[in-house]
Design a protein around this nucleic acid. Structure first.
Lengths: 189, 189
DNA sequence: GCACTGCCTTGATGTAGATCAAGAATAGAA
DNA sequence: TTCTATTCTTGATCTACATCAAGGCAGTGC
């Protein structure tokens, strides 16, 4: 059982025979550092599981690039409005490092409904979980200081600080690189 | 066709005969100002459509009540982790005004799978839409000032400022009541 | 009517975090 | 290696917003 299968198994709890069938519908893909997974305004009819590497989800806003999220190993990646609503992508998604992906093409994605009987239900659960995560994230902006947000991220995922440039993490945390630098000095020093 | 039916129709685009059947599974319910729809830690196996009135979704955090969201007429309300994952509620939900609801009980909610064949798919779409809204909300905290966030809310839903106490709106916008007061003074002349 | 309660406003002051600017460190490329 | 481009740090300053404190105005009950 590979990384993807064990994730799907653990997450969706589906039977073993459909598991390998599902996993086989994903195709390996790789991105080099700097490559785009998708660009805002284009279409991105695919869903990917990140085997290794880091992707940055961001959007341009008046000269600035705002990093909405950074995705690492063992996470799914997609632009939801494209995948679900067949609209153009809302986000730029770019590889911060070389990346290995398992990708479900649009055709394969549609096939899922046939192969996995309760696929819409599994999708629903998956998206609902993402929703809850975002709820917590909104709450963190409503109720925490920059330093507290840093601490939460660091405790949850300290690896990321060694893998991706801090300026993107700062943006994702809603602070400037200078502030993050000072917070880290205080926290690590 | 009542308010709920026209909403469901517009939103889910289901056939007319199943439409009335779906709508009939909701039961009317009312809350008085101050009543709780659900309390954090309890269970809330229900989904409601807000016919009239305003509900505040909030959570206690160190002496403070942080308002995550305020729901008004024509919106659905629930605590997702309870409805979908059968866990205890993550939020307190309280009526800010007297409220009229159409409520789908847990049993009726389960029935939906039988009555509406592609209910999980509709649910998926619904939750996905909520997810996109939350994404935008996170982005607003990453990229906008308090004043800009106020302007966006005001342009999108100015009614709300006449219907609910400003201190809750301030909290939901991530600022203090004093700051909101000053921003409004400036904005309204 | 008056008192009480809840909410909003206004002013004075404090501070977290932004901005600006200059180096230092690190990573890539030739 | 050396050159260049990023990224990270540090200090000085600024500002958006928070906090603290007082007063004003409803709305509600007696």
């Amino acid at each position: 059982m590979n990384q993807l299968e064990s994730y799907i198994s653990g997450y969706f709890g589906i039977s073993n025979d459909s598991l390998s069938q599902v996993a086989s519908m994903f195709e390996e893909e790789s991105l080099s550092k700097g490559d785009y997974y998708v660009k805002a305004g284009r279409y991105c009819h695919k869903l990917s599981f990140l085997k290794s590497g880091y992707l940055r989800i961001f959007r341009q806003k008046e000269e600035k690039e705002i990093t909405q999220w950074i995705s690492g190993p063992d996470y799914f990646v997609t632009d939801l409005s494209t995948l679900i609503f067949q609209q153009t992508a809302r986000w730029d998604i770019q590889a911060l490092t070389d990346c290995q992906l398992y990708t479900l093409s649009n055709e394969a994605y549609k096939e899922m409904n046939r192969v996995v009987p309760d696929w819409p239900k599994l999708e629903k659960l998956f998206i609902a979980k993402c929703f809850l995560t975002l709820e917590d994230r909104v709450f963190s902006f409503l109720s925490m200081t920059a330093e507290e947000r840093y601490n939460v991220l660091f405790e949850m995922n300290s690896d990321i600080f060694n893998q991706v440039p801090l300026l993107y993490l700062a943006s994702m945390l809603g602070m400037t690189p200078e502030t993050l630098s000072r917070i880290r000095k205080k926290a690590l020093g």
